[in-house]
Simulated scan of single mutants.
Amino acid sequence: MTDDRLYPTRPILAASVAVIRDGRILLAARGKPPGEGLYSLPGGMVEAGETLAEAALRELHEEVGVEAEVMGLLTPVEFIERDGRGHIKHHVVIAPHAARWVSGEPQTGPEAKDIRWITERDIADLPMTAGLGGILEQAFTIARGDTRP
């Protein structure tokens, strides 16, 4: 399999997960570009043969060592970045999920420099990846038990 994440010939499909535990959501500071140091949801590329939810849960376990149960799909986010010449450097379509924490205490590693369980009040103070605020709003709505879209 070729890795065409940088200057891709087509959009890349990824999945992420907003893990909910006691009204808080798990965020990790990215350990690699793009967005290194920014807070985001654990996630990564979908592998051939995986469902979006399977990919999100696999990436969650690989990145931070947590197990969760998917509750539903949230609104997809697109990340498109162009270089100085206008060429597409990154184009990733991310399918975020809301999930209920099952087990494991999150651990930092190469892909997660820092980990935080955040409340809605914490959002304003964190440097985050583009589009994450709207995803977190959806996930916090689910965390409150309000399942209306």
Rank of each mutant, 00 (worst) to 15 (best):
T147W: 00
A139R: 01
G49Q: 07
L73S: 12
A55H: 09
Y7T: 09
P42S: 14
E78V: 14
H97Q: 13
E67M: 05
R121C: 02
G65D: 06
G72S: 10
P127G: 12
A139W: 02
L136N: 03
G37Q: 13
T9R: 07
V102A: 09
R24L: 08
S103I: 05
D146Q: 02
E69G: 08
A29F: 01
T147M: 05
A15F: 04
E47Q: 15
I25Q: 01
D146C: 02
R100C: 10
S16C: 02
I135V: 15
G131Q: 12
V93Y: 03
V64H: 04
I115D: 02
K113H: 14
P127Y: 02
V17A: 10
P110R: 11
I115C: 13
T141R: 14
I94P: 00
E50T: 12
L52D: 04
R10K: 14
V66A: 07
G31T: 04
I88S: 08
A53L: 12
G131Y: 08
L60A: 08
Q107D: 10
L52F: 09
R148W: 00
L38V: 07
G31F: 06
L26P: 06
W101K: 06
V17I: 14
G37L: 10
H91Y: 13
T75D: 11
A48W: 04
R144I: 00
A139V: 05
G109Q: 04
V70Q: 11
D3H: 13
E69A: 15
E105N: 11
Q138L: 03
E111L: 15
A139L: 05
E78F: 03
I142A: 09
T108W: 03
G145P: 11
E54W: 03
G86P: 03
G133W: 00
G35C: 08
I25T: 10
P110C: 08
P76Y: 03
V66E: 02
E63H: 10
E69W: 05
Q107S: 15
W101D: 09
V46D: 01
E111I: 06
P8F: 02
E78T: 12
A56Q: 09
R10D: 01
Y39I: 09
D125H: 11
R100V: 11
